[in-house]
């Protein structure tokens, strides 16, 4: 996998997640700012999916291919579902939901890296 993109998506997801939890603490509902932050994270995640497809098409492969594909799908599905569920409650708790979704995305991307090279598979590519 492309380490830079993975690190960028983890960092973006963590920043967005902390911003969401901060808004929860400040008693603010999900606004344009948080939605934009979630959009940025989702854009980086989509770029990562495209990069992963390119890398796999060039002949590299994950150490745990099934898990890799599942985590890849989960990484791009989590935020849209999280945004939908958070907008159902226009209170601080909606922001909390989005925050949890962002933190979950960060964990998913960490796991994505682990199942890609559990034995150092990508160093040769």
């Amino acid at each position: 996998m492309i380490d830079g993109l993975a690190a960028a998506s983890i960092a973006c997801a963590l920043v967005a997640g902390v911003a969401c939890l901060l808004q929860t603490w400040r008693d603010r509902a999900v606004g344009v700012g948080l939605l934009a932050a979630a959009g940025v994270v989702e854009a980086v995640l989509l770029a990562q999916v495209i990069a992963a497809i390119v890398v796999v098409a060039r002949g590299s492969h994950a150490d745990q291919p099934v898990n890799f594909v599942l985590y890849l799908i989960a990484s791009v599905v989590a935020l849209p579902v999280g945004v939908w569920w958070s907008l159902g409650d226009r209170s601080r708790w909606g922001s909390g939901v989005l925050g949890i979704a962002c933190l979950a995305v960060a964990i998913i991307v960490v796991r994505l890296g682990q199942v890609w090279e559990s034995t150092g598979g990508s160093t040769g590519g």
């Binding site: 708790w93 909606g94 939901v97």
Partner: peptide, 9 residues
């Protein structure tokens, strides 16, 4: 609703 929404998440 409320905190329960986070629980469901």
């Amino acid at each position: 609703g409320g905190p329960g929404r986070i629980l469901v998440t």
